[in-house]
Structures are given as C-alpha cells and as structure tokens.
C-alpha cells in the first residue's frame, strides 16, 4: 500500500505567531494521497484547510511556521529541501491552483508571458518552445490560442481559471493542489471547470488535493474526503461513506447546512 502513496503527511503542525503567543492553526494532521487519487478537504473558513495547502508547498512565510511533523512527496522529505531545490521542485512536481484567478495572474503580463515565465525559469527553453507548449495547453483547456496575447482582464472569470489551470499543468506535475478553484464562479461555469479538471485528471492521471467548502461539489468528484474542524481532521473516508453514512457530528452538520432540492418547503 504505502509505495502507492504519493503524498504522506504525518503529524503536521503549523503555528502562527501572534502577540499573544503562537496560535496552532493545524494540529497534528495525518493524511495521505495515493498516485492518481483525488482527495477532497472540506471545512468552514478558518479551519486551516488553506494553511495545509500552503504547508505542502512550503509557501509559509513568518509569522507562520511549520513546527512539527513530516511531509513526504514521492519518497522525498519536503521539509528538508533547501531554497534552490524547493524552487525547482515546486511546479514541476506539485503545482497549486488558487481560488481567485484574477489574483493568481499578473495583470500587467499577457497570458503568454505568464506561461513563458514559469516555463523558461524551470526548463531554460526558448521563447519559441514556450510558445508551442502554451498553444498546446490552451487547446487542452479549450481556449482559442489566439487569446495568448491578451491580458488577464480581457478574459472572463471562467477563462482566467482555465488559464491558471493550464499554467499549473505546464511542467506536467504529478500532483495539483486546488484551493477552492471554482468558488468565485457561476454554477454553469463552475460545472464546466470541474468537468475540465476531471477530464484532465483522467487523461494525465495526476493526484489532486481538492479544497472547498462545498461538500456536494466535492462528492461529485473526489475519491476520498477529509473533513476538517478547527485545525484537526475529524473524519476521513471514501466519498460514498461520507455522503451516505457520515460518522462525525460535524460532518452531519455540514451536510445539513446546505439546502438541497430535496428539502421540504415550509420547515424552518
């Protein structure tokens, strides 16, 4: 079993330094993701789910500190990397898709320049090669490659999220961390993007850590779901079990918090 594990997190602890002393945002979290698996991570705002995402990429800057535990990705100890290894490792092995596509793209660079930036830095290849790769990726996410020379503000929200997704794929990473990738989008566009992600995942077989607060959305797509509350993972199970047979009270509460079409009317 364990050789299938792409990501293995043991006893992870993240602290934020505050004036009143350290605040523990992530409390001894264990989780793992197998190769090609989609793990959903759900919880309300402030429960530490994004903090975990940042910790996995070692993106935390003071006052945030990883104060305990281990992170192993593909057999390598991520916490032991030096800065240079880390820069090479990020994006080529594991990439990250942020919630707000507008903030993830540089507003003064064209779409192509954003692609070239990553590509050139990691592979040292020429602009022409970057162009070819960018055109290929744009085709993959269903945007006309002619839009490569547009600026982010000229694209719609859904297109921007597609560009961010394409950018995360540029070095063919083995895992993509997605931090609420569809939250800022309309339902129909959200569905399109989700379908896109599921399709790309089936095609390339990368692992996904999918973070959202929308349990129903997550259940449509994840293989397993972890539920987080106040820095701790309170329940992890197969999606079917989380949907049909939630064990923890908080999981049940999360399900009840969302009105669905099955709700009887007139009951407050």
């Amino acid at each position: 079993m364990s050789e299938d594990r792409f990501l293995d997190v043991k006893g992870l602890e993240v602290d934020y330094m505050t004036l009143d002393g350290p605040f523990r945002a992530v409390k001894t979290v264990d989780l793992h993701i197998n190769k090609g698996e989609v793990l959903g991570l759900a919880g309300e705002s402030g429960c530490g789910k994004s903090t975990i995402a940042y910790a996995l990429m070692r993106l935390h800057r003071p006052p945030a500190f990883i104060s305990g535990g281990s992170i192993t990705v593909d057999g390598e100890d991520v916490l032991a990397f030096d800065e240079e290894t880390l820069n090479q490792w990020r994006w080529s092995k594991v990439s990250l898709v942020f919630q707000s596509a507008m903030n993830a793209l540089n507003p003064v660079l064209t779409i192509f320049e954003q692609f070239r930036d990553v590509y050139h830095r990691h592979t040292g290849k020429s602009t022409a090669e970057a162009r070819a790769r960018a055109i290929e990726l744009m085709g993959l996410v269903g945007i006309d490659p002619a839009r490569l020379d547009d600026f982010p503000h000229q694209l719609s929200g859904g297109m921007r999220q597609r560009v961010v997704l394409a950018n995360a794929l540029i070095l063919e990473p083995q895992m993509i961390i997605m931090d609420e990738p569809t939250t800022a989008l309309d339902v129909v566009v959200q569905r399109e993007i989700l379908q896109e992600i599921a399709g790309l995942q089936a095609k390339f077989g990368f692992s996904i850590l999918f973070i959202t607060h929308d349990l129903a959305l997550m259940a449509q797509f994840a293989d397993r779901i972890a539920i987080m509350l106040e820095g701790e993972i309170v329940e992890v199970n197969d999606t079917q079990e989380i949907v049909n047979n939630p064990q923890h009270d908080y999981t049940k509460k999360l399900w009840e918090a969302m009105p669905s079409f099955d709700d009887t009317k007139g009951v407050a």
């Binding site: 339902v187 379908q195 797509f221």
Partner: peptide, 23 residues
C-alpha cells in the same frame, strides 16, 4: 442551470472528451 447545480448523488463524468462537449 439546474443540471450544473452540484449534487452529491451524481458523480462527475471524468472523460476528457466529454468535458469539451459540456462546454
């Protein structure tokens, strides 16, 4: 609009070609 509302009961169709069809 209605078919796009996430529902825990239906799995998303994980097929690369179908994603394009939906779009």
């Amino acid at each position: 609009l209605l078919s796009s509302v996430p529902s825990a009961k239906t799995k998303i169709d994980a097929n690369f070609e179908h994603a394009k069809d939906f779009s």
